[in-house]
Design a protein around this nucleic acid. Structure first.
Lengths: 210, 210
DNA sequence: CGGGTGCGTTCGTCAAGGCGAACAGTCGGA
DNA sequence: TCCGACTGTTCGCCTTGACGAACGCACCCG
């Protein structure tokens, strides 16, 4: 076993994470096996389950589970999946290492998102550090015609928290009027709008790429 | 093969997703193999890679890759990992299906988080629908002594966007003073503070459980 | 002291995943 | 038309993951 996981192919575009660059812990290439072992044991103990019990619930041989927690071996997806279901934790948690970092973006500073209109401005606060699949935007908008967004990738969910002003936000066929502090989430793969009703309307947008 | 993946163990606490309940698409239990096949082919074609080329980059036999895209077989984590690296997509994307839903929470409505102090109020906007591992809070705070948070689980990252007022936010040893629109992210497993400096300070907090 | 029960580990067997090679099919140029 | 380079598929072989049973250990109760 032991395949070449560390290969960084030079011909690959390498999307260049705009914000959130260097990460302290080992990046994705470090290999998931050791992390799986640790995560598996940690989550199992957190759930207060014995190795035997978890194996029974997941329908996995406890010998297999034992070996996995010893970082011996390379589980199949189906096996690991069964364990994640039995533990009721997201699959990714068992596989993906974490990455901590402090990141600060001042109000005016972040890279602007392609502003197709003068009265609508989205500042990127945090794009997904390769594995987290969520983007954070700060929206600033002025009253005007509704901004219709084309639907994105299927599986995208958008969360909007209105900070100041008022706005009509949500699926195009049934948007909600938000006041400061209001929150709405909707599937991003449906057509949706953001229409500011008050001047100086601002909002926080979290876009999850699932 | 074909293990019992759908098992919903009654003895399991079943954390009861507080917000964001029913989901349209097949939930996690549907089994990842079919999704992997589709995602693999989709991502490969999106990247404009041939099967041969991707196999070479990932260090995987192209026969293996071919079978995976045909939904034949149950790849090992290491294999799938190598492919996710070569494709430069998050591992989870290859495995997890999506879940869409519209969700609206009015300013005063969401379930309050255990307010240990009168001048600090966190409203839960969206707890992680079992698999998304991130919480959304609306913070309302008044000037007063700094609110020190005990460090959480390792791997937790908190994102704060200040909406109104001013606040001192971040790691306890080096917090940043935020003005409206400012953004900061920091590892949640370090001690950190949230200290409002202006009356009526509000912020959006995204807590990622990795 | 037996001898239950639970834990987590190690053993040997069997099936299945991963591999390279050989295979069919398509496009483009000499 | 033939050739070469490319695509993605299918074919045996061998390694390895997953399994059940047996094992060593702690604990508790009669």
């Amino acid at each position: 076993m032991e395949r070449t996981l560390t290969e960084t192919d030079p011909t690959q575009p390498a999307p260049e994470p705009p914000v959130d660059a260097a990460d302290g812990t080992a990046p994705e290439a470090a290999g998931p096996l050791a992390h799986i072992a640790a995560a598996l044991r940690r989550e199992r103990q957190k759930a207060g389950l014995s190795l035997t019990e978890l194996a029974r619930r997941a329908g996995v041989a406890k010998s297999t589970l034992s070996q996995l927690e010893s970082a011996a071996g390379n589980p199949s997806v189906e096996t690991l999946w069964a364990l994640s279901v039995a533990l009721d934790v997201p699959f990714a948690l068992l596989v993906q290492p974490a990455r901590p970092q402090v990141q600060l973006v001042r109000a005016g500073e972040g890279p602007r998102f392609a502003a197709d209109r003068a009265d609508y401005l989205a500042t990127v606060l945090s794009t997904c550090p390769p594995n987290a699949r969520r983007d954070l935007y700060l929206i600033t908008a002025e009253p005007g015609p509704a901004r219709e967004s084309d639907p994105h990738m299927p599986g995208v969910v958008e969360h909007v928290v209105l900070s100041t002003g008022r706005a009509l936000v949500g699926p195009s066929d049934d948007p909600a009027e938000l006041a400061p502090g209001d929150y709405i989430a909707y599937p991003g793969d449906l057509p949706h709008v953001f229409e500011a009703l008050d001047p100086g309307t601002t909002a926080v947008l979290v876009s999850e790429h699932t």
